[in-house]
Design a protein around this nucleic acid. Structure first.
Lengths: 108, 108
DNA sequence: TCAATATATCATCAATTAATGATATGTTAT
DNA sequence: ATAACATATCATTAATTGATGATATATTGA
């Protein structure tokens, strides 16, 4: 049972990667094409450091990968299954969006 | 674009439902068979109020459903796709578990 | 009715975490 | 070499959120 809890801790941590608007937006933003930090921060209207922080977190976890090209570093999704998972989120959401929206326990 | 951000906000909120050990454990615990609050709190060794709080949150969002039977209320997963999504989490995790584990930005 | 059991609610506290701003590192072109 | 650009790092702050404990509500059986 202890092992299960540890497993769930990791799994929860995985899902938390998708559980923040900024991080999720980053993932969605690079799910089609690789992008630089600057490009992403412009698109999301978020500070460079914030995006960079999230990206380093996502990289460390293996959710995104990156390649360096001169001054730039291009980020992209590290595993196809991540994209698939995000798509499935949409699928569920299409049915329960209203409930999620009205959930007061979480702000945004 | 604004609409997309709103969409991502909901989606992030959805994933946050799975992004906490206690909530995730609750979902996993009732994914096979419906259970009462008391049963779940015993299993997870969590207080009744904590489990109940999470369940009301999960219910509101439509992630779990419940039926009342006398003094008891039995909770179960609200949508098959939720179980599927959780399973896919395992799938991804089997490959990137180490990265997730060593991610220092999040505690547990 | 009253006690026992099961669950819900809710304010408060403690812990977690996202964002900011400042600074550091690395790369390219002049 | 140095200015300009791109990214990373990190301490601090502000906001969010999970857990607790107390209490309220509901149901059943004696």
């Amino acid at each position: 049972m202890k092992q299960k809890v540890d497993q769930f801790e990791l799994k929860a941590k995985l899902f938390r990667g998708f559980g923040d608007v900024t991080r999720l937006s980053i993932l969605e933003s690079i799910s089609e094409e690789e992008k630089t930090v600057t490009k992403i921060s412009e698109e999301l209207d978020q500070s460079q450091s914030n995006v960079s922080n999230h990206l380093s977190c996502l990289s460390e976890c293996g959710l995104v990968k990156s390649r360096k090209d001169g001054k730039n570093r291009f980020y992209s999704i590290g595993d196809k299954r991540v994209v698939k998972l995000l798509k499935q989120g949409d699928d569920i959401l299409s049915d329960i969006a209203e409930g999620i929206y009205s959930c007061v326990n979480y702000k945004k």
